[in-house]
Measured scan of single mutants.
Amino acid sequence: TGEEYIAVGDFTAQQVGDLTFKKGEILLAIEKKPDGWWIAKDAKGNEGLVPRTYLEPYS
């Protein structure tokens, strides 16, 4: 299990392996990579890379 984050903006996948999401979606951070791209999972179970700058902790 990971930590929940809320998307603060829309993001469209730029390449294969990225995860597209919309502002307000809750994402589960699976792995926090030091380069600023995290592996996350959305509510539908889709998994991919997301930019850290689009996420804020969800409580």
Rank of each mutant, 00 (worst) to 15 (best):
G24P: 01
A40T: 04
K41Q: 11
E4W: 15
T1H: 14
I39A: 05
E3K: 09
K23E: 07
G48P: 00
W38L: 07
I6M: 08
K32C: 06
E4P: 13
Q14T: 13
I6Q: 06
P34H: 11
Q14W: 11
K22P: 02
G9T: 14
A29C: 15
G45W: 02
T1M: 13
G45Y: 02
Y58T: 08
A40N: 01
K44C: 13
K41L: 10
L55M: 06
R52F: 14
L28D: 02
T20Y: 04
D42I: 02
P34L: 11
G17W: 06
N46K: 09
T1L: 13
K33A: 09
P57D: 05
Y5D: 01
F11P: 00
W37T: 06
F11A: 02
Y5A: 00
T12I: 12
E4A: 14
D10E: 06
V50H: 01
P34Q: 11
P51M: 09
V50N: 01
E56T: 10
A13H: 04
A7V: 04
E4N: 09
P57C: 08
I30F: 06
L55R: 00
L27H: 00
I30C: 06
I26P: 02
G48E: 02
G2A: 12
V8W: 05
W38Y: 06
P51F: 12
E47P: 04
A7Y: 02
Y54G: 04
N46W: 06
I39W: 13
E25C: 05
G45P: 00
L55N: 01
K23L: 07
K44T: 10
Y54K: 10
L19G: 01
T12V: 11
P51G: 05
G45I: 01
N46A: 07
P51I: 05
F11L: 05
G48Q: 01
P57E: 09
I26S: 03
Y58G: 05
K44I: 09
G9S: 15
Q14K: 12
A7H: 00
A29E: 02
T1A: 13
Q14A: 10
D35N: 12
L19F: 02
D42C: 03
A7K: 01
P57S: 08
Y54A: 08
D18N: 11
S59P: 12
P51S: 07
L19V: 02
F11M: 04
K33C: 12
A29R: 04
Y58A: 08
K44W: 15
K41A: 08
P34A: 13
E25W: 09
E4L: 15
D42S: 05
D10M: 03
T20D: 07
V16C: 11
Q14I: 13
T12S: 09
Q15Y: 09
T20E: 07
Y54V: 07
I30N: 02
W38S: 00
